[in-house]
Each structure stands twice: as structure tokens, then as C-alpha cells.
Design a protein around this nucleic acid. Structure first.
Lengths: 342, 342
DNA sequence: GTTAGCACTCGTATAACTGGAGTGCTAGTA
DNA sequence: TACTAGCACTCCAGTTATACGAGTGCTAAC
């Protein structure tokens, strides 16, 4: 059986209606809804076909139809095609440039959540491939040294190092010079053992300090590696009865609370990244099992030179994909612009 | 009417039983439960009195009794008296000393949540009254300066300052010296306008930079002022049917998500701080209206010299106050010890 | 190919019924 | 006087019975 134009139109009508109401859609409704001018009986026949083809399903006999994951998938794919042609220039959501990236990303998550009425997550751009821009050691007191590591994009990491024997100002200066000349402009992954050995040699007497600094830097990276994730609007899911079941709600919200559980989602979305940078996971397609009753839309943004972050929106399967995709495109563009201004 | 010994015993029995089961407690249950050897009928008479006195109430005729807020209050007050005598030395919860305070507090919240099965919050100690320990300006590139402010207790704040005209190394050194001599050891509140004016004068040509640095410091404080709050285990409330109602659950979890909504609670608990540092809010007593169906237990910890933070536990009114109070005392002690080691 | 009509299904909402848990009261007992 | 046994009564929660509406599938007719 083939999905001809009429079947397609009916399917679209069913899905759109279901998106709006959240109730199973009957043949009579569609008969009035569409401009096809067909009787309910005809619609029923078509619906029967559509069900056989797996695009829609009945929650029970004598109920209307609801879209299956496959149906949603078709719908979303079609919509995305249209979207690519549109040039979305709506400015609904405005990102103010703020000092702290952290603050900014939090507010992106929040704005997005209140705007869409879904749950949202935003990850800080991964430092992967990012370059060390600047290093600074300074003495805090007799046996504590403050190490500051600044990476491209003004990602700043502090580390307090305990030292046993006091270092003179001079030594500190020398170490600073040594570290900066050796490490500045290097991608964090480039810092390898030979380099470290070399630096230790150059440091001479104070190679133990170098060692500790390197450890500190490594530590900075490690901290950054377990991804910063900001979430907002998790409680929005209570707005959708189909997700308000205690068990489901608890699972979903818990995933948002334990943000690290979202890592899988982020990785997946960075991996599969489509041309447009937008991914839609419907129901069982999701990489995070707790969200199998939801749909997840992710977008990738880039703050220049491989610093990629992810934005995700989680809602019911009947989410307003159209709006969500537009909003996400809009936001990612704005984030891109933001970087260019810097 | 007076709460004699027998009435008190019965009340305690009712409350304890209700804490365990969450179900209204009937006279027959108590008759078997206590060592008073009284018939249900007698218990009924006493219960009737207790109800009249406002310690217990009936959800409906022909149901057992449940404790009223007043009843819980009595119970908690009595328990707290006993607690003071006990020397709690259980080491259920172990705080590992970690590099980053932020990380440590997060894990305290988490450990506490999994340990108690309630929702928890932990605030970072307020910097109020905290002293500047160390300041450092360094050049990142032509027109960006990195200002690092370290306060007592190794609270570190970074700020990137944009400058118009390039500063020489020499000038930077001078500014560093100037700022450090003037500001180190000062409590952040002590930094006042005359001081700033003086410093600007001393800075001579570069007073605009001083101005910006001061702004940056002020900014650091401001960021710190809107309290860092870490939460965990919000979804634990789903474990208690009396809170699992959609509306209630949503409200409570939302409060935990929008952490700033908890500020009121923190302020209140710092204000009312009792001798033991532990506060119990039952039902309507809570400073945060969304939690009027819960009980909230807060404890204050101190990382030395006025750096006070708050730990809070939110659960159903029938929470295991005994365990919660013990655990909190335990943890606050451990936090105190932690500081001493530093 | 389309449609009208009808019997059938199923879920939800409502009312009626039942059993159990618990109370308050009264009268009887130590 | 203090306690208790007994009983009638109340109310909730769970179950069954019933009615209704929405929607389907099928057949026969256009």
C-alpha cells in the first residue's frame, strides 16, 4: 500500500488535531476539519489503511486514532523540509549579552522554558579542542598558590595549589613565564608527557611545583569534562496530563535534577548532528530511556572554533514541533551572533 | 483541661504510629500499641479530649486521628529536649574533603537526600563579613584584564575587565600593589567611598581602571549576594502519597528548581536560629508558602568567622524528625571540623 | 469509488450497594 | 470514680450495575 496524497493529507490532519487537543481523533472530526469534503465513512476506510501502515493507532477499539511514533516521524521530517526553506527571523527571544557565560546559559534555559512551556536544558560549550589562552600563578600565602587557567572563549578555571616550601617572587615569575611560553596557544589535548617532562627539566629545582600545576590544569579539564548542564521548567511537564502520571513525572523530573543523566542525550545529539543542527527524537528513539514517553528536540550551537554546546527541549510527543524548531533555530543563531560580537 | 502523663503517652503513641504508617490511627491500634493496657473505649475518651485540646484531628468522622500541626509541634519540642542531652556520634554520613567548596556542598545535599529520602537544600556560606585575602590583575590580551578576587575561605571570583588603552606591565604591577595594600584584610563591607576615592587618587592616570576593578569587586559581591543554593532529591517527595498530588508536587518541585524561591527560608532560619542551630517548621509555620503541607528542618553551619550557611530538609509532616535532626547535627559538626582542618 | 446506515464495542461517568474501620454513647462492672 | 463492653451509627473505599456517548467496521446502496 502506498501513502498517496489523500492519505497523507488525512494523516496530517489527524496529527495536527491531536497536537492541539491531546485527545484521540475520530473520523467525523477529520471529515469536518479538512477541505477534502469526504464523509466520515470514507475517512474511516482511509484511517483503517493508515493504521495498517503503522502511522496511527487506536488506544482501544471504539476510540479515535492517535499518531504512532512512525506517524510523528513522518510529520516532523516533512515539517523540517519546509522549515529549511523558510528564513526564520522572528526575534521573540532576546538574549542579552551578559558578563558570565554561566549566567547567560541559565537564562537561555529559563527563557526557553517559559516561552515554550516545555522542559529545557542547555549545556555549556565543551572545551574540547579549546586552546589555553593565558596562565597565571600567584602566591596567596606561605603555602598556597593560586593557579588561574584561562581558555579561549574566556572560560576561566581557578585552582588552589598547596606547596610545601615557600617560593620566592622571582621563582614564581620564572615559573609563570615558563608555563605561559610552553602552554599558551596549545589545545588542552596537545599537552602531552614529553612536553611536561621538558618543562620539568626547565623548571629545575621546582619541578614538583610544575608537576602540581600540570595536575591542576588536568584537574581543570576534568572538571570541565563532566559537562555543565543547566535546566529549567522541569515542572512544565505537569501541564500535560499524559506525562503527569506520578511514576513518569518523577522519572522525568529526576533526570532533570540529576543533570548528568542527560549527558547521553548531549553526546548523541552532537554525534548525529544533521545539516541544520537540529535533531528530533520521538518516543522510543530517545537516547535517554526515562524520556520514552516524550519527544526531545535538540539543537547544537557553536561559539566559534569547535566550542559546541547543546540545547534541548523535552515535552510530550504532541509538542508543537513547528514552534520549537523555529525557536531553537532562532536562539542558536543569536548565540552565534553573540560570539561574533565578542 | 490539662495534658497529663497518660494523655501525653497516648498522643506520643498516635504520632509515632502515624509517622510510620501515614494512616489515621484508631483507638484499637493504640490499645494494643502502648504498654498502658487500656481498652479501646478508654483510649477513645482520651482521644476525644486530645482532639478538643487541638493536638489531633479527624480527617472525617469514623476515621482514626492524625496529629495536628500543634501536636507535631509538641512532639518535636519534646524530642529536641531529649536530643540535646544525647551526644550524637554516629558517623553515617562522611564528608570527604574536596577541592572545590561548590562540589562539596553539592555532594552534601545529595548524600543527605539519599540518606533521608527527603528533599534537601544546602546554601553556600554567605560571604557577609568575609575578608578579602588576595587580589590579582593580569593582562589577558590588549584590551582585556583578568581580575581575580580571593576571599577568606578560598572563595574565588573571576572577572574580565575590558579596558580601552593598553596598560604596561609596570602599571599593572603598580595597580596590583595598590589594590592589595589597600584592600587585603578588609571585610568586603568595609570598602567604602572615601577609600575608593583615595585609591583613585593614588592610581593617578589610571583611575578609570581602579574604578572598573572596584566595580568588578562589587560585582563579585553582588553575584555572591544572591545566594548559591544547591538542592537534591526533590523527586523524593513522590515517595509520600500525601504530597504526590499533582498540584502540590509541582509546586514543591518548582520551588526546588527555582532555587531563589528558597531564599526566604534561608533568611528566616539564620534569623531565628535557636541554641542548637536547628529549626523545625511544621506545616503552616513555614516561611515558604508552597511548603505549607510539608515540614521543613533547617540547620545552620559555620565555616568559621561568620561564614554561615544553611542546610534544609523538606519532607512530609510525618517525617522522621528524630533521624533528620540527628543527621543534621552530625553533618553540621562534620562541616565545622572540616574548616578547622584547613 | 463513495456514502448512508446500523449494529457493535469500549471507556467513562454515575448511582446503588456493601463491608470494614472507627467513633460516640450508654450502661454495666470493679 | 474509673474503666470497659456493647451497640448503633457514620463514613470511606471498593465493587457492581447501569446508562451514555463516541467511535468503529461492515454492508448495501448510490
Amino acid at each position: 500500500m502506498v501513502l498517496d496524497d489523500r492519505k497523507n493529507k488525512i494523516l496530517q490532519a489527524i496529527i495536527q488535531n491531536y497536537l492541539e487537543t491531546g485527545e484521540p481523533v475520530g473520523s467525523r472530526t477529520i471529515s469536518k476539519y479538512t477541505d477534502l469534503e469526504l464523509s466520515p465513512a470514507t475517512i474511516r476506510n482511509e484511517m483503517s489503511d493508515l493504521e495498517e501502515m503503522g502511522y496511527i493507532l487506536q488506544p482501544h477499539t471504539s476510540a479515535g486514532r492517535i499518531p504512532s511514533d512512525k506517524g510523528y516521524r513522518l510529520y516532523v521530517d516533512m515539517m523540517m523540509e519546509n522549515k529549511d526553506k523558510e528564513i526564520e527571523e522572528l526575534k521573540e527571544v532576546i538574549i542579552e549579552r551578559e558578563e558570565k557565560m554561566e549566567q547567560m546559559l541559565k537564562s537561555v534555559a529559563k527563557v526557553l522554558a517559559t516561552n515554550t512551556n516545555y522542559a529545557t536544558m542547555v549545556t555549556a560549550p565543551a572545551v574540547k579542542g579549546n586552546k589555553v589562552k593565558f596562565l597565571q600563578l600567584s602566591r596567596m600565602d606561605e603555602n598556597q598558590i593560586l593557579a588561574v587557567v584561562v581558555a579561549e572563549g574566556n572560560v576561566i578555571k581557578n585552582n588552589v595549589i598547596q606547596v610545601n616550601d615557600e617560593l620566592s617572587d622571582e621563582t614564581l615569575l620564572k615559573l609563570n613565564l615558563l608555563l605561559n611560553t610552553n602552554l599558551c596557544g596549545k589545545a588542552i589535548e596537545e599537552i602531552n608527557l614529553p612536553m611536561i617532562t621538558l618543562m620539568k627539566q626547565q623548571a629545575g629545582l621546582h619541578q614538583d611545583v610544575v608537576s602540581e600545576v600540570i595536575d591542576a590544569i588536568a584537574d581543570s579539564i576534568k572538571v570541565e569534562e563532566d559537562l555543565q548542564i543547566y535546566t529549567s521548567g522541569a515542572t512544565n511537564i505537569f501541564k500535560y496530563p499524559e506525562l503527569s502520571d506520578n511514576q513518569k513525572a518523577s522519572d522525568i523530573i529526576h533526570t532533570f535534577e540529576e543533570k548528568q543523566l542527560l549527558t547521553q542525550l548531549v553526546n548523541e545529539s552532537l554525534l548525529n548532528e544533521s545539516e541544520a543542527g537540529i535533531q528530533v527524537y520521538i518516543g522510543e528513539e530517545t537516547p535517554v530511556q526515562t524520556m520514552k514517553d516524550c519527544s526531545v528536540v535538540t539543537a547544537t550551537y557553536e561559539l566559534g572554533e569547535g566550542m559546541k554546546g547543546t540545547i534541548g527541549i523535552v515535552g510530550p510527543k504532541r509538542m508543537d514541533y513547528d514552534k520549537v524548531v523555529s525557536t531553537l533555530k532562532n536562539i542558536t543563531h543569536q548565540l552565534d551572533d553573540l560570539y561574533k560580537k565578542k
